[in-house]
Design a protein around this nucleic acid. Structure first.
Length: 281
DNA sequence: ACTATTTCCTGGATGC
DNA sequence: TGCATCCAGGAAATAG
């Protein structure tokens, strides 16, 4: 399930492969669920645009678009002048993938969008569970603070007064944008903090440690290409390796790597939360 | 203004 | 073997 490190890995792979390419045509599946913007608007915004670059914002893929250079096929109605800084925003949800395919490649089940590029390749959005979302916008901004750039003071300010469990607060995208279930558990383990602790009950020192742990775990995961569990693969179809570094996530009942105490799993706000009852207080 | 709960969706795992 | 049930989980919607 793509969280910040996986989306970062995918964005880098896509940028390498499709930046500079031009969008020739767009096909969108019939079911509307994955579309946050109207299909017509997505298609008209993408067609005949050049992909300037692909990057990550929070857990979103952002395709920065610029005028394609070549003349557009259809004249535009009045008041529909193209915005200069349009962006295609893709949220992969849990099982979404953005593939760069050769046009002849077999169409995967659950393909909801196909973008034909001037190079002859195609971008294909595949998402069995349909939790992913496509939209177009301009000047896209994450709802919360970017975890890799957050200052400790800002981090403190974000969490200090929350009554909700710290784990739930870490997952709240309006506070930090990009931390998901795996990395919240891993960061809390590294900081020695139980997921159920109320954020407001943590000391300044706890929160500073956690701020560091969040950044550390995200950076390490990015350097290993993210965590490949269930459906995740990078833009080239390669797997990440950070799942081998998980210390608590998915290790219920297995010995803590520090103290050998069996890792516990509790459900918090409907999410599995893994922790060591001895190392985390 | 927050916080907690429910809902969406399907493939894979589990159990009888 | 086949069928039913449960579970995974990000984020929006809803309720408190």
């Amino acid at each position: 399930m793509p969280e910040l490190p996986e989306v970062e890995t995918i964005a880098r792979g896509l940028d390498k492969r499709v930046a500079g390419d031009r969008i020739e045509a767009v096909w969108l599946g019939s079911k509307p669920e994955p579309l946050k913007s109207p299909a017509k608007e997505i298609a008209s915004t993408l067609e005949a645009r050049r992909i300037a670059r692909v990057r990550r914002v929070g857990k979103h893929l952002v395709f920065d678009l610029e005028s394609g250079g070549a003349a557009t096929k259809r004249p535009r109605a009045k008041g529909q002048a193209r915005k200069a800084n349009a962006q295609w925003i893709v949220h992969l949800g849990m099982t979404g993938r953005m593939l760069v395919s050769e046009p002849g490649a077999e169409l995967e089940k659950h393909t909801h969008a196909i973008v034909q590029l001037a190079s002859g390749r195609e971008l294909r959005f595949v998402d069995p569970r349909r939790f992913g979302r496509l939209s177009v916008t301009q000047d896209f901004e994450a709802p919360g603070t970017e975890p890799l750039r957050v200052e400790p003071e800002r981090f403190l300010e974000l969490f200090r007064k929350r009554k909700t469990p710290i784990k739930s607060a870490l997952l709240n995208q309006k506070l930090l944008s990009g931390v998901g279930n795996i990395y919240a558990d891993e960061a809390l383990f590294r900081a020695g903090i139980r997921p159920r602790r109320r954020a407001a009950s943590l000391t300044r020192e706890d929160l500073c440690r956690l701020c560091f742990s969040v950044q550390e775990v995200l950076k390490e995961a990015i350097s290993l290409g993210g965590s490949s569990i269930s459906d995740y693969v990078g833009a080239d179809g390669e797997e990440g390796f950070f799942q081998l570094q998980h210390r608590v996530y998915g290790r219920e009942g297995e010995p803590c790597l520090v103290c050998n105490t069996p890792v516990k799993r509790v459900v918090l706000g409907g999410r599995s939360s893994h922790y060591c009852p001895r190392c985390q207080k």
